[in-house]
């Protein structure tokens, strides 16, 4: 291996380490916003929860968890040089992300028996799900960009930071929903 190649690899490893730190710091700062929303939910609603379809909640949650599984597969595939596996996993994740969005914004928002203007419950529910849906949407756009680049021959087993960043961001969106799901759909009794 030439000296130039060794220098390039060393620089890439350094950049990768700083990129990872930067991404995790961003995620930490974003987590504080979601944490604030969760605190607001428990402070304002206490032992009550919005009147929502729990089965629909379980379905959209399962879809998002499944999407994380396929995202992990896609990242693993690229880390092992399997481009077809990466493209397949990314595309499935993207489709599941869109299905989740349709489930929450297209269905849940339409059938919920309250509006955003209907007091505290409406404000909390639409702010939490809306802010999260916005993150899912940006994640879907990120996935589309990474998929397109992957199809055009970008990324390799050694260098695929964008894929890793996309995967970490997507899983973060999943982690947020892991807490939002019980907070909105499961904990407490339905507010009368």
């Amino acid at each position: 291996m030439s000296t130039e190649t060794l220098k390039y690899r060393s620089e890439y490893k350094y950049k990768l380490a700083t990129n990872r730190l930067g991404l995790w710091l961003f995620i930490l700062s974003d987590a504080f916003v979601f944490g604030g929303l969760l605190v607001a939910r428990f402070y304002l609603l206490g032992d009550t929860r919005p009147e929502l379809d729990q089965t629909l909640g379980l379905i959209v949650t399962s879809i998002l968890l499944l999407s994380s599984f396929f995202m992990n597969r896609a990242e693993t595939a690229m880390a092992h040089g399997d481009r077809q596996g990466f493209l397949r996993g990314t595309l499935i994740t993207l489709v599941l992300g869109v299905v989740f969005l349709v489930g929450v914004v297209g269905v849940e928002w339409q059938i919920a028996p309250f509006k955003a203007s209907d007091g505290v419950i409406g404000s909390i529910f639409y702010t939490m799900t809306g802010f999260h849906a916005f993150h899912v949407l940006t994640g879907v756009i990120f996935l589309a960009v990474v998929y397109r680049n992957g199809r055009n021959g970008h990324y390799s087993a050694e260098e695929h930071w964008a894929v890793e960043a996309c995967a970490v961001y997507w899983h973060f969106v999943d982690v947020v929903w892991i807490f939002f799901y019980p907070a909105l759909y499961l904990i407490g009794t339905v507010a009368g």
Partner: peptide
């Protein structure tokens, strides 16, 4: 998820 999918130890 954080441990196995987000690979926090990589950091």
């Amino acid at each position: 998820v954080v441990q196995n999918y987000m690979h926090l130890p990589r950091l």
